[in-house]
């Protein structure tokens, strides 16, 4: 096992981790604002991937030239983002909004219900068997050496994920909407007293989380190249774990958590064996939470009377 092999695994891990982080953001933002573990988020992304597959087929992207391919991918990201964002807002309106004052577990169970409904929609959309997602990008090595590989696919993840995260940080830190989101996540009543339209802010949060998920679904298809109606659960699980690991509710935490989970996954697959990966990821999660109960970057909150 050489240094190069180790570096290669780290690279795979970081790329995977960036993808996980993008999904984790959707969990952490919704949790931060209404305290709901949105179990349906993973399946929302599965539906995004179904749309991406249908669009790739409809647009004939598999046979297009390089310029058209890149344009097509950008279009896919925007369309799937809009689709998932809108769907997320619609679900919030129809399902979670009437439950704002219900017992805490009611929205959680509803989210599990929504996740089952999404899964069924995916089943009707693409069928029960796994489907191949066309390889749109050449898998030539961009580095001039043998042992270490970076392909266009890896690069695509970075090209899409980094600007989205920078954009999100700017949005949350610099704009009025971002300020309102931070206010609502701290105290809904106080925020509404100073004139924040709480419902609109919550809808915006669901939209942004869904949009990021939609973008992630396109990258997922292009990077992993296989989709099925059950991918939502597994990916949602890892992303949710990443969000908790980083400190749920914290945006930089979700990114860090995603990268850590990605690294742990690829290194344990390479050095211990793929079949143990799930156990190792969660064992590390439990150990970290025992020593840092608020997650890596989470705020320590005191229970108030």
């Amino acid at each position: 096992m050489s240094v190069q092999f180790f570096l290669q695994q780290c690279l795979i891990g970081l790329t995977n981790g960036a993808l996980i982080a993008l999904v984790a953001l959707g969990y952490t933002m919704v949790y931060g604002i209404i305290g709901l573990i949105n179990f349906a988020h993973g399946d929302l992304i599965m539906l995004g991937a179904c749309l991406a597959l249908s669009l790739v087929t409809a647009l004939g992207l598999a046979t297009a030239g390089p310029t058209a391919t890149w344009l097509g991918i950008s279009l896919l990201i925007v369309l799937c983002g809009l689709f998932c964002g809108t769907l997320n807002v619609a679900v919030d309106r129809l399902v979670y909004k009437p439950l704002r004052s219900a017992p805490k577990l009611a929205p959680l169970v509803s989210a599990i219900g929504v996740s089952f409904i999404f899964m069924n929609m995916g089943l009707f959309w693409i069928g029960s068997a796994d489907r191949a997602f066309p390889e749109l990008l050449p898998s030539t090595n961009l580095l001039p050496m043998e042992g270490l590989q970076i392909t266009w696919k890896d690069l695509l993840v970075v090209i899409v994920v980094v600007p989205l995260m920078v954009g999100l940080t700017l949005l949350v830190q610099m704009t009025r909407l971002g300020k309102a989101m931070r206010a609502v996540s701290q105290d809904q009543t106080a925020a509404s007293l100073v004139g924040v339209d709480v419902d609109r802010v919550i809808a915006a949060t669901f939209f942004i989380g869904g949009f990021l998920g939609g973008a992630a679904s396109v990258i997922y298809g292009l990077y992993i190249n296989t989709i099925g109606f059950q991918i939502g659960f597994q990916n949602g699980l890892y992303a949710f774990t990443a969000a908790v690991l980083g400190g749920i509710g914290s945006i930089p935490g979700a990114v860090l958590g995603g990268l850590v989970i990605g690294l742990v996954r690829s290194l344990s697959s390479a050095y211990v064996g793929e079949r143990w990966t799930g156990a190792i990821v969660f064992a590390i999660l439990i150990v970290i939470l025992v020593f840092r109960p608020e997650g890596l970057l989470g705020r320590r909150t005191k229970e108030k009377v």
């Binding site: 573990i37 699980l237 908790v244 749920i248 799930g278 156990a279 969660f282 439990i286 939470l289 608020e294």
Partner: peptide
Amino acid sequence: PTLRLRGDYLAIVTLGFGEVVKVTLRN
């Protein structure tokens, strides 16, 4: 060791433990 965690963190610990047990039983 985990019961001092707040509600949702505890939920994810139990979820993680479930996965660990399942993978261990399988492997």
